[in-house]
Amino acid sequence: MCALPDAISITLGVAGFGVVAQKFPLIEQAARYIGSVFLFFYAVLSLKSAFYHRPRFASTRSVSEFIELKTKKFSG
C-alpha cells in the first residue's frame, strides 16, 4: 500500500531535480561529486565493519543462554 506513494514521491523528486539541474548546471555537478564522496566513505565504513566486526554477544553469557533467557521472558 505504501509502494505507490513512494514511487510517486520519488518520481516527482527526480523530475524536480531535473528541472533545477537544467536551470543551474553547477548543482548537478555538486550533487554528483558529493554523492560520490558519500558513497566512497560509506563503502569504506562497510568494508571496515566487515573486517573488524565485534561479536554481537560480547558478554560472559553464551548465545544459548541468551536465547534461553529471551524465550523465558516471552513465555511467562
Rank of each mutant, 00 (worst) to 15 (best):
R32V: 05
R32I: 06
R32L: 08
R32Y: 02
R32G: 00
Y33H: 08
Y33E: 12
Y33P: 00
Y33T: 09
I34P: 00
I34T: 12
I34G: 00
I34L: 13
I34M: 03
I34V: 14
I34A: 12
G35N: 10
G35K: 07
G35D: 08
G35M: 13
G35C: 05
G35E: 04
S36Q: 13
S36I: 11
V37D: 08
V37K: 09
V37H: 01
V37T: 11
V37C: 06
V37G: 03
V37R: 07
V37W: 07
F38A: 07
F38I: 14
F38R: 06
L39V: 09
L39R: 04
L39H: 05
L39A: 11
F40A: 14
F40M: 14
F41C: 08
F41A: 03
F41K: 03
F41R: 04
Y42N: 02
Y42M: 05
A43I: 10
A43H: 06
A43W: 09
V44N: 02
V44L: 12
L45W: 05
L45F: 14
L45P: 00
L45E: 14
L45A: 14
L45Y: 07
S46L: 11
S46K: 11
S46A: 14
S46N: 07
S46C: 06
S46M: 12
L47E: 02
L47M: 05
L47D: 02
L47S: 08
L47A: 09
L47H: 04
K48A: 03
K48I: 04
K48C: 01
S49R: 14
S49H: 06
S49A: 14
S49Y: 03
S49P: 00
A50D: 01
A50K: 11
A50Y: 02
A50W: 10
A50E: 04
F51C: 11
F51M: 13
F51S: 07
Y52L: 06
Y52C: 02
Y52G: 01
Y52Q: 08
H53M: 13
H53L: 13
H53V: 13
R54T: 09
R54I: 02
R54H: 09
R54L: 01
R54G: 00
R54E: 06
P55I: 04
P55D: 13
P55L: 06
P55Q: 12
P55H: 06
P55C: 07
P55W: 00
R56V: 06
R56L: 03
R56I: 02
R56N: 01
R56G: 01
R56E: 01
R56C: 00
F57W: 05
F57S: 04
F57Y: 11
F57A: 04
A58C: 08
A58Q: 13
A58E: 11
A58L: 12
A58Y: 00
S59H: 02
S59K: 02
S59N: 11
S59Q: 01
S59A: 07
T60V: 08
T60N: 12
T60S: 15
T60C: 08
T60H: 07
T60F: 04
R61L: 05
R61I: 03
S62M: 09
S62V: 02
V63W: 12
V63K: 15
V63H: 10
V63S: 07
V63D: 11
V63G: 09
S64Y: 14
S64E: 15
S64V: 15
S64P: 01
E65R: 11
E65S: 12
E65Q: 15
E65Y: 03
F66L: 02
I67R: 15
I67G: 05
I67N: 09
E68L: 14
E68Q: 14
E68Y: 12
E68W: 09
E68H: 15
